[in-house]
């Protein structure tokens, strides 16, 4: 049996997203361990131009490039995967733990009776078998999970696997697949897609500047936005800031918001409630700025400043700006 590991490529605006290369890096590692080959799957409309980048990593790139796939829908994407699965199946399929990856993976698992481990932070070999590692209970613990199925599916969080480019590009083949869609495959319609221009997506950001109750009001987030601009960072918020209506829920970091893994997380006026820490404590570096020296956030911050954030944040933005122009 072919022991292939497949990666479903994520892309936006005609470009492969970084998480795709994170998945390919991990996929290559799994292949080396199980003696398999790495393949990629590219689904969308007008996407074929991205295949060469995948060919460098994968022995084979499955391409489904059809107008019906312009926008992600679970029905159409599942049909595309189903058509490919009729030709060949992997032992493991890796998807990003993104909004679409987490939407599609369970549908595929249910359709093909596969074993699915969701939102993993790693997959390792343990006694000759693959073991997924996934955080549970608000990042309090990691569960190690084994798979009991010929089809193993896994979604992996963005930002946790460091990308290492292939030493010898593999120059894989491209296999185009033509999918015949019937009405049932297209029952989900996309009416509208709105994109926030120039905004850095929280779950993909390397740097996040986040504000909490200590911001005092929605107007004060301007100073965080300015700092974020200087750093090329995304702006996040705590649950109190979101529940107060100061920021949209799409910016909430925490157990009922987003779980983020940036290189740097700057928490401003955030005390550090358990549900907030659940969303950001895996950040590589944590900086806390808070006037309350007893704030729990300081217990896990690498650097803390006990001061009024309204004095610190603008000054910090200014300093960084100066450094960057030096």
């Amino acid at each position: 049996m072919m022991r292939n590991v497949w990666v479903l490529a994520e892309h936006t605006d005609g470009k492969l997203k970084r998480v795709t290369f994170e998945l390919l890096t991990k996929g290559r590692e799994i292949c080396a361990a199980v003696g398999g080959t790495l393949c990629a799957v590219l689904i969308g409309s007008g996407v074929e131009g991205m295949a060469p980048d995948l060919q460098k990593w994968a022995s084979k790139v499955w391409v489904v490039d059809q107008p019906s796939l312009e926008n992600y829908t679970p029905d159409a994407y599942a049909k595309a995967m189903t058509t490919i699965f009729e030709k060949e199946r992997p032992i493991m399929l890796l998807l990003a733990a993104s909004s679409n990856g987490r939407d599609l993976a369970p549908k595929l698992a249910a359709r093909f009776d596969g074993a699915l481990a969701s939102s993993c932070t790693d997959v390792v070999m343990d006694g000759g078998r693959l073991v997924g590692i996934r955080p549970v209970l608000g990042e309090t613990a990691f569960v190690r999970v084994g798979f009991k199925s010929p089809l193993q599916i896994m979604t992996i969080r963005p930002n946790v696997i460091p990308v290492t480019e292939p030493e010898n590009p593999s120059n894989g083949t491209v296999e185009k697949v033509d999918v015949t869609f019937d009405e049932k495959d297209l029952r989900t319609k996309v009416l509208e897609v709105t994109k926030a221009a120039g905004k850095v997506e929280l779950t993909e950001a390397s740097i996040i500047v986040s504000g909490g109750r200590g911001m005092g009001g929605p107007e004060n987030f301007k100073i965080l936005e300015e700092l974020a601009d200087v750093l090329g960072a995304a702006v996040g918020a705590s649950r109190s800031a979101v529940d107060a209506g100061w920021r949209p829920h799409s910016e909430q970091v925490g157990q009922t918001g987003k779980v983020v893994n940036p290189t740097l997380y700057i928490a401003c006026g955030i005390s550090g409630a358990i549900q907030h820490l659940a969303g950001m404590k895996t950040s590589r570096w944590i900086v806390a700025i808070n006037k309350d020296p007893e704030a729990p956030i300081f217990k896990l911050a690498d650097f803390g400043i006990v001061a009024n954030l309204f004095d610190v944040v603008p000054k910090l933005a200014e300093e960084i700006k100066t450094m960057k122009t030096d």
Binding site: Y72, V190, T194, A196, E201
Partner: peptide, 8 residues
Amino acid sequence: VEGGFMRM
């Protein structure tokens, strides 16, 4: 969705 919203 990442970077925006989708109405379905």
